[in-house]
Amino acid sequence: MRNINAIIALCLLISGLSCQPNTQDQQADTLPIYGQRHYDAALQDTVYHQVADFSFVNQDSATVTPTTFKGKIYIADFFFTSCPTICPIMKKEMLRVYEEFKDNDQVAILSHTIDPEYDTVGLLHDYAQRLGVNSNTWHFVTGDKEAIFDIGLKSYMVTAMEDEEAPGGLIHSGAFILVDEQRRIRGMYDGTVPEQVDVLINDIRRLLKEENQIATS
């Protein structure tokens, strides 16, 4: 069963990677929609890959579910507070995204710890405070470890797993994942590369424009 899961995850990952923006999308000035899609005969419409249901706890002990992000777009990533490798760079870059959109209540950030045994609510609270960010915009969440690894692989199409050989004992992708109001993935960016984060900031503006056009039409 584990193998099957891994294969499904791998397929999702490959399909996610191969789904690059095409010229049509650029012409229409909308961002691509990532992941597998299929036609639903009953709905008579295309069904897109969506982020699955989840329930985690943030730095203020509040429950965070997809409802938390209703009417918002959000950026997801995976990290752990004691991470000696790419996390501080990712957080420095995510801080730029935060500073840019902290006053816009349509934008949120969701950082999952992949080391929930060590990263307790109290520790995440301290971490967020020391970064100088508030929980209305930026959620640092912890929860069941398997559920976090699972949603990383299956919903966000990124790697997050234990590996004794890696520094800190965990390996994880440095991706920032842009999710729209319908829980669809609209962009993936390397959170350790400033130029890619510039693209993300620009894409957030494009996505907000798109969402607001839908809302008014």
Binding site: P88, I89, L95
Partner: peptide, 16 residues
């Protein structure tokens, strides 16, 4: 060093 202290030596918030 730069992963944590950053390439420009500015650290990270009140963490690093």
């Amino acid at each position: 060093c730069s992963n944590c202290h950053q390439a420009d030596g500015t650290g990270l918030g009140q963490l690093i």
